[in-house]
Design a protein around this nucleic acid. Structure first.
Lengths: 316, 316
DNA sequence: TGACGTCATAAGCTGGGTTTATGAGCAGTG
DNA sequence: CACTGCTCATAAACCCAGCTTATGACGTCA
């Protein structure tokens, strides 16, 4: 050690977009992995072989790692290439979810299937459902409207939506519904936080008294939390107020403090222990997520297809 | 109903990269969300205000949705814009994981912290850990080598790695270690699969006799599965053999058949019910994930920092 | 040895995104 | 009321990344 001759220069850290290949390149890499040939991969993504060659090469230069072993009878991924490809796949997956959602947003008035959903559902569940729906019924044009429960109900009753998804304790008046999933709020913190190694259950009063990382006032998550802790002294002033669930998550992961988040948002962080859940005594932070429709008008056609994607058990 | 006048033309479906804005645009959008101003966002990402204006505008054209409400005293996201921004954040998150991993791969010989990890860990856990480590110790240069348990042990003993991560039942000879997480294999299928609504536990013999979607022979996941089902007639011929965990996952989600996957890979799909877990009677598909180091040489410095990110409980 | 596959190289073109320079709209202030 | 300061939009010139076409080199197989 010792030999550090300085802070290693100014360490040029250009923006993420300059250090991560663009989507086209990532798709190309994945295609190479699948086909074992640059030319075949090029054909799949609709470019010529030299373009593919050059693109892969520049990606290797950018990352500073050899990704593929070229040989006169094809190209296979190197070990590092396999790893990079797996990470690339996750970017592409997120891009597909983005695309599915965006495509639904675009189809405004005239679409076949109009879905109204609460924010949490629209944000975390719809993209996956839409990808699945697209796989099953490729032609379906979907439009997605996000709003609170009242707005969803209103749209359904006005005939402006074919099916809705809401979170909450009860089905709004005039609607029928079925529970399709659950949204449990979890208190989480980075593993380095003292609460993470605390034995036993946390006292709700202590939770209420502790400043948390939260979304801004008015978010559904915050309302539920407010209600649940009303009997324990009410919520303390937030440690940080952030504009999106993902921002809250990032702050919590980085150790800024404890946060309360939907389990839908943090499943991966929990699995990988970037966040740990802290059990709280007796506070029930669970909401049902329901598909809803105008009373008596069970969804048919595409709406029914969408519904069947979301629930494994009969309506009951 | 009725009025379908045709299959809606040939529906030009250009590649994903043409339908999803590039990373720079997504980062810009997120910056706009944070600052409430195009100009400020532009400054943050290092471009000029007109460039930002044009970029947001072209993104809106591409998506066919208004993303920001412009006013003479700033720009706020529209409802659709908020939704799109959340989806964008998930792409950026995946890109950050990619970057963290890639940066670790790049730092070959001379890096400060050399990590050797099994594939599952390198793929699913390391990127998150590296992001966290970077947040805590910004200067640390990390290199990541992926291989099986034997390769990890060899690198540690040869002094080519400072800390290792392996999956398996025991700590390799010559190493000390501590369990940092668990990798449970789960049998999963799309909610539409018959097994998904099956009551009770699945008979292991039936599982063994059923063709599954699997990774190619030789993968760690497949070895564990093979061993677990050896006493029940052995694994049937696979329904599909795919080259990556993500590909297996995608096939399972799309309803191609049941698959066996690490819970690390499917936590989000389980939470959103795009996949459901099917309990199997008495088959224990759980592996410990351990941090390991040469016996007697507890990690120090950056390696220790990394370790402390991964475990919430004392070494014991 | 010739045909077919692989990937690499070279030259020229195109377009998206950038910059600088400028203008227009609204708010707050004296 | 007009001045100052913020906002965003528009226009014109520029630059470079990535594309295509054309070609070449290398290895394998019949």
């Amino acid at each position: 050690m010792a030999g550090r001759s300085g802070p290693q220069g100014d360490e040029p850290r250009p923006h993420l977009s300059h250090r991560v290949p663009d989507l086209g390149a990532l798709e190309l890499l994945i295609a190479v992995a699948r086909h074992g040939s640059l030319g075949a991969a090029a054909r799949e993504v609709g470019i010529t072989q030299p373009a593919a060659s050059s693109r892969i090469r520049s990606m290797e230069r950018q990352l500073g790692v050899a990704l593929v072993d070229r040989s006169p009878r094809g190209s296979r991924l190197t070990d590092a290439g396999a790893l990079v490809t797996d990470w690339a796949r996750r970017i592409v997956e997120a891009a597909e979810a983005f695309d599915a959602g965006a495509q639904a947003l675009r189809g405004r008035r005239d679409s076949r299937l109009r879905v109204a959903a609460s924010m949490t559902i629209a944000e975390y569940l719809m993209p996956g459902w839409l990808i699945a729906l697209r796989a099953e019924r490729p032609g379906t044009a979907v439009s997605l409207q996000a709003g609170n429960s009242a707005a969803v109900a209103q749209r359904l009753l006005a005939g402006d939506a074919d099916v809705g998804f809401v979170e909450g304790l009860a089905v709004p008046d005039g609607l029928d519904g079925v529970v399709v999933a659950h949204d449990r709020l979890a208190l989480v913190a980075a593993p380095s936080h003292p609460w993470a190694r605390r034995p036993g259950l946390l006292d709700p009063a202590e939770l209420a008294a502790t400043p948390l990382i939260l979304r801004e006032r008015g978010s559904g998550t915050r309302q539920v939390l407010d209600a649940a802790l009303a009997g324990h002294g009410g919520l303390a002033e937030p440690l940080l107020e952030l504009a999106s669930t993902t921002a809250v998550k990032a702050a919590a992961v980085s150790g800024a403090g404890p946060a309360v988040l939907s389990e839908l948002a943090i499943s991966e962080e929990l699995a990988s222990r970037r966040l740990v859940a802290i059990p709280v005594e007796g506070v029930l932070l669970r909401r049902d997520l329901r598909a809803v429709w105008p009373a008596g008008h069970r969804p048919t056609g595409p709406a029914r297809d969408l519904l069947s994607l979301t629930r494994a058990h009969p309506t009951g």
